[in-house]
Computed example of a mutant assay.
Amino acid sequence: MMTTAVPAPAISVRGLEKSFDDLRVLRGVDLDIERGSIVALLGSNGAGKTTMVRILATLTRPDAGTVMVDGFDVMTDGANVRECISLTGQFAAVDQILTGRENLKLVAKLRHLDDPGGIADEFLARFDLVDAGSRRVAGYSGGMRRRLDIAMSLVGNPPVIFLDEPTTGLDPEARIEVWTMVQELATRGTTVLLTTQYLEEAEKLADRIAILHEGRIVANGTLAELKELLPPAEVEYVEKQPSLEDIFLALVGKNAPEGELR
C-alpha cells in the first residue's frame, strides 16, 4: 500500500528562546506553519512577535532552539533562508525619491533577475499601480506605499513572506486593499506569517491563529478551534459565540485558562 508523503512545514520552530539582558522575550516557542497557508501571530505589545519574525528572517540570532524556513536552518544556512523569504515591516521600506517603477526595478536588480524593467511593469499592473508608476513615491498615499512595499517584497516570487503589522497606520480602505493582496498571495501558494494587533484582521485573513503570551505560544488553531476554548455566552436566552477578542483577552489576561490548545 502506497502512502503519500506529508510535505514538511514551510516554517518549523522548536524550543525558540531569546533574551535581551535580563528580559526573557521568548521562552520556548514551538510553531509549525504549513506551506501556502496564512498564519496570524497575535500578542500584546512586547509579547515578542517582532523578535520572533526577526529571528525567522535571520536578522536576530536566537539563544536556543531550532528554526527551519523552507527547509533551511536559520542558524547555519542563513544565506539560503534569505533567498527564499521576504520581510515587510511596520513601515513601508520604499525610496520616496524614486518612482514606483524605479523602486521595483532596483529590487529586481538586487535579486540579479533578468529584465528588471519588465518585472517592474508586471508588478505595477498586478498591484494596480500602473498610473502611479512614473510618479515619485513621496506623492503616494499610505495605501499606495504599502501596496508598492508588498509588491517589492514579492519580486523574485519568494515562497515565504513575513508581514509584520502591515496595516499599522492605514485607513480602513487601505487596510482592505492590503487584506485583498494577502489573500491573493495564499492563492498563489505563498506562505504568509502575519503579525497584527488588529484581531479583525486575523479573523479575516488567517487559516490558523497563534497567540504569543509571556514568551510562549499559549494557543494555536483555527478560529473555530479557538472558539471552543471559551463557552458561548447567553444573552436573553440567545447563544452568543465568543469573538476572537474575547478569546485573546481570556488567554493573555489575569483569568487565563491553564489549558493550552496545540
Rank of each mutant, 00 (worst) to 15 (best):
T58F: 06
G65F: 10
L87I: 15
L193N: 05
D246M: 04
D246P: 06
T190C: 06
V192W: 06
R126P: 11
L226W: 15
T187Y: 08
I38K: 02
I55A: 10
P7C: 02
L212A: 06
G143I: 00
D121T: 11
A206C: 03
P62F: 05
V25F: 00
A132N: 01
G48Q: 09
A40I: 02
G118L: 12
T167S: 12
A93L: 02
E214W: 10
E165C: 09
R175L: 01
A233D: 13
A174W: 08
G259I: 09
E258G: 00
I33Y: 04
L87D: 11
A233L: 14
L110S: 13
V94M: 07
E228Q: 15
R111L: 03
R27W: 06
D121G: 03
Q90T: 14
R147I: 08
V39F: 00
Y237P: 05
G48W: 09
G142D: 03
V39W: 00
E17N: 13
L59Q: 12
A224D: 12
N157K: 12
E177S: 13
T196P: 09
T4V: 09
T3R: 04
I85G: 00
K254I: 10
V155N: 04
T50C: 11
L251N: 10
N157C: 06
D246V: 07
E34I: 06
D246W: 04
L244M: 04
L41R: 07
R208K: 02
E102W: 13
N80F: 08
F20G: 12
P158T: 06
M152V: 03
L87G: 09
R101S: 07
G15R: 15
M1S: 11
W179H: 08
A57K: 06
C84N: 14
V238G: 00
E34P: 00
G118I: 15
T222K: 07
L41P: 11
E102T: 13
R111H: 08
P242N: 01
D73R: 10
E225Y: 14
H112I: 13
A5H: 04
G169T: 05
E122A: 15
